[in-house]
Amino acid sequence: MAVVTTAPNGDLPCATPQDVTFDEIVSGTGRAAEIGLGTAVAPSITLVPRRKLTAPRERTLIAQILYHLGNLVSTLAFALFLFLAVGPHLFPYQTMTMLTGSMAPTIEPGDVAVDSRVSVYDLRPGDIITYHIPVEDNRIVSHRIVSVTPEPDGSVTVQTKGDANPGNDPWVANFAGGTAWRVDTVIPKIGQGIRFLRQPGVAEVARFAAPALLVAITLPAIWRPTRRRRTDPDPHDVQYRNSPFAPGSRK
């Protein structure tokens, strides 16, 4: 686009307004070209191309498999945590990890027994129940009922036995009404981690190792140095500063 300015007749060198037409001034031809009207030296501007963004690398097949596998493992671990730790507080069931082989092969060490609450009057021989033994340290066991004996006071006495044990348990358990926990389902092997942590010495190490690991993961994220701001000039700023239209330019 040409910018045309008007001037008094005396300012037009070697010509008068009658000698030069408006179209000649706009197009820079004829008499206007001879006296230098309507033409201008095109400024020399070097255009700097914008820096191209590096295209992200395409994920290899192995990377995609590892990515989806990691998501699957994380999801399963979270679901297992909800099932073992949260579910028993929200729903009418409890879980118990078998630590010994007293019920093998029905319940192997590392298997998780899922119990539901039933009336003690519904207990029958052959049922597997989870209860506190009435002797020694009152530990919890899951053993099979051998016999059920109703007592005159309305309570129920049961004799139990571990499937892998040669004889009946050396105690009897008395339930004075109410409910008992009966094993309904056995999920194999998912309690191996819990069984490992229950081993002598491992729990003590895990008690100190878990907080240390958490700190080691958290601190780098907190103290990660901020990314330095780029000092390289913007190509467009260079282009603008080198142009004849920049403030203070003498071009």
Rank of each mutant, 00 (worst) to 15 (best):
V183M: 14
V172G: 01
W181S: 08
G167Q: 14
A173D: 14
G154P: 09
I140Y: 13
G178Y: 11
F196R: 00
T106L: 12
G193W: 15
N165F: 11
D169E: 14
I194Q: 11
I145C: 04
E136M: 03
P170M: 01
R207I: 10
V148H: 08
R139T: 12
D169T: 02
V186M: 01
V215Y: 11
M103I: 09
Q159S: 05
A164S: 15
P170H: 00
D153P: 13
G193V: 13
V215W: 14
D137W: 06
G201A: 06
V186H: 00
K189F: 14
S142T: 15
V202W: 15
E136H: 04
A212I: 10
G154A: 10
I217Y: 15
P109T: 04
L197N: 11
Q192C: 07
R195M: 15
V172T: 14
N174R: 15
D127L: 09
V183R: 11
D111K: 06
E204R: 09
T130C: 03
L123E: 10
A180F: 10
R182D: 08
S116C: 04
T157Q: 14
A206P: 13
E108G: 02
V172M: 07
P105I: 02
P170L: 00
I190Y: 07
D137S: 12
V186N: 00
A210K: 01
D153Q: 10
G178I: 07
T106C: 02
P150H: 06
N165Q: 10
G154F: 09
D122P: 01
I190G: 04
V183Q: 06
V141F: 15
F175W: 08
V135P: 03
V215F: 15
A203T: 03
I194K: 06
I187F: 00
F196I: 05
Y131C: 03
D115P: 03
P150A: 07
V148S: 04
I129F: 14
A164F: 15
I129V: 15
G177P: 10
Q192T: 09
S142D: 14
N174Q: 13
I133G: 00
I194E: 11
P152R: 08
G177H: 11
S155G: 12
T130Q: 14
P170Y: 00
Y131A: 07
D122H: 10
W171T: 00
T130A: 06
V112S: 05
V118R: 15
K189Q: 09
R144E: 07
D169M: 06
I145L: 11
T157S: 11
A113Q: 13
V146G: 13
F208D: 07
I133P: 01
K189H: 12
V158Y: 01
I190R: 00
I145A: 06
N168C: 01
V156W: 10
P188W: 06
E108P: 02
H143N: 04
F208K: 07
S155M: 12
I129L: 13
V205M: 13
P188T: 02
I140L: 13
A104N: 15
V215E: 05
P166C: 02
G191C: 05
L214Y: 13
A180R: 09
L214R: 05
